[in-house]
Design a binder for these strands. Structure first.
Length: 290
DNA sequence: AACGAGGTCAACCGCACCATT
DNA sequence: TAATGGTGCGGTTGACCTCGT
C-alpha cells in the first residue's frame, strides 16, 4: 500500500501565490507560529496544500530573508561549502543567514556553475575540467584564476552579542576547516553567531515579533493592477518598509502586537499616515548583526 | 515591432527521514 | 517492529523576463 498524498489535491490551487494568500499565511503564522503545516490550509482557509504553505513561508515570506543577488562574499561561501558538502543545499543555506536552500540552489545552477566553468573548474568536483587534467601544466593557471576571483579569505559571522560569540569548527559536521579544494588555499573558518536566546542563527528560531515585516502601504493599488496574480507583489511591498525602530508603534509593542497584525496592516495600508515618507533600507536587519 | 532563444526563479513533485502510535 | 503521518530536501518544471536578431 502506497503512502497517502500529503494532502487531498482535489480542488487545491497551484501556481503563483497572490498577495491575499500571502497575507492570510503571514497572519496565521504570526498568531500561531510555525507548526502543523498540514493544518494550515484548513485553519487559514487557503486552498493550498500544507507543503505549499511551508514552502511559500520558508522560501519567500519569512521575515529574516535577505533578498537580491548573492554578494561576492556569499558566493565564495557557497562555492566553498559546496566543495565540502555537494548538493546539500539546506546545509549550505544554514551557513548563510537570510538565504534559503532554494535560492542558493537556483543561484548555483544559473550563475556559479557558469562562472566556474568559465574558470575551467568543474562545478561538480571543484577540480580543473578534464581537458586541464590532461595538461597538468595548466593547473597553476587554474589556481591563479581561482585566486583572482576568490582570493583567500576568512569567513566570519559576527555575533549580535559579542560576549556570546562562539566559534564552532565545521569539523562537527565532517566539514573541517575548509578549502575550496585541495589545489588552492581558500580558507574559511566559520564562526557561528549565538544570540542571547542561545539560538545559533543557523537554527532560525521562530520569528520574534520585531523581526516581522508587513506590507507597506505604498503599492496595494499598483500591485493589484500590475501584477495581481504575481507571486512577488507582496515582497515588492516589503522592500520599502521602515526599520522596526521607525515603526509608529515603536519597540514597545511587546509580544502581544502580533495579535493586532490586521490593524498594523491597516495602518500601513492607510493613506493617512506618515509612512509615505519613510524609506526602508532592506538590509536594515542584517546590518544589525554587523 | 515582432519573434525566438536563453536565462531566471518561484513553485511543484516525489522521495527520504524521523517521530509517533 | 511495522505502519503511519508530518516535514525536509533535492531535482525539476514552467511561467515570466530579457536580450539579440
Amino acid at each position: 500500500m502506497g503512502r497517502q498524498p500529503c494532502c487531498d489535491k482535489v480542488g487545491l490551487k497551484k501556481g503563483p501565490w497572490t498577495a491575499e494568500e500571502d497575507k492570510k499565511l503571514i497572519d496565521f503564522i504570526l498568531n500561531n507560529g510555525q507548526c502543523c503545516w498540514r493544518a494550515v490550509p484548513k485553519l487559514t482557509g487557503l486552498l493550498r496544500c500544507g507543503k505549499s504553505c511551508r514552502l511559500r513561508w520558508t522560501n519567500y515570506l519569512r521575515p529574516d530573508l535577505k533578498r537580491g543577488l548573492l554578494s561576492e562574499y556569499e558566493e565564495k561561501m557557497v562555492i566553498d561549502l559546496h566543495a565540502q558538502l555537494g548538493n546539500r543545499w539546506s546545509k549550505i543555506a544554514s551557513h548563510l543567514p537570510g538565504r534559503t536552500d532554494n535560492e542558493i540552489k537556483n543561484h548555483w545552477n544559473t550563475h556559479i556553475k557558469k562562472k566556474l566553468r568559465k574558470m575551467g573548474i568543474d562545478p561538480v568536483t571543484h577540480k580543473p575540467l578534464s581537458t586541464n587534467i590532461e595538461q597538468p601544466e595548466n593547473l597553476p593557471i587554474q589556481q591563479e584564476k581561482v585566486q583572482e576571483i576568490m582570493p583567500p579569505c576568512t569567513v566570519n559571522y559576527v555575533s549580535i552579542d559579542q560576549s556570546a560569540i562562539t566559534e564552532i569548527k565545521l569539523d562537527d559536521d565532517k566539514m573541517g576547516t575548509s578549502s575550496i579544494n585541495n589545489n588552492n588555499n581558500f580558507d574559511s573558518t566559520i564562526v557561528h553567531e549565538v544570540n542571547n536566546n542561545g539560538f545559533c542563527t543557523d537554527e532560525v528560531p521562530l520569528i520574534e515579533p520585531h523581526e516581522i515585516l508587513v506590507p507597506s502601504k505604498s503599492t496595494p493599488s499598483t500591485s493589484s493592477s500590475s501584477s495581481s496574480s504575481s507571486s512577488s507583489n507582496i515582497i515588492e511591498d516589503l522592500k520599502f518598509l521602515p526599520s522596526f525602530d521607525d515603526w509608529p508603534m515603536g519597540n514597545d509593542m511587546g509580544f502581544g502586537w502580533e495579535n493586532d497584525f490586521s490593524s498594523t496592516l491597516d495602518f500601513l495600508l492607510n493613506d493617512d499616515n506618515d509612512m509615505n515618507n519613510v524609506t526602508y533600507d532592506e538590509s536594515w536587519k542584517f546590518e544589525q548583526l554587523l
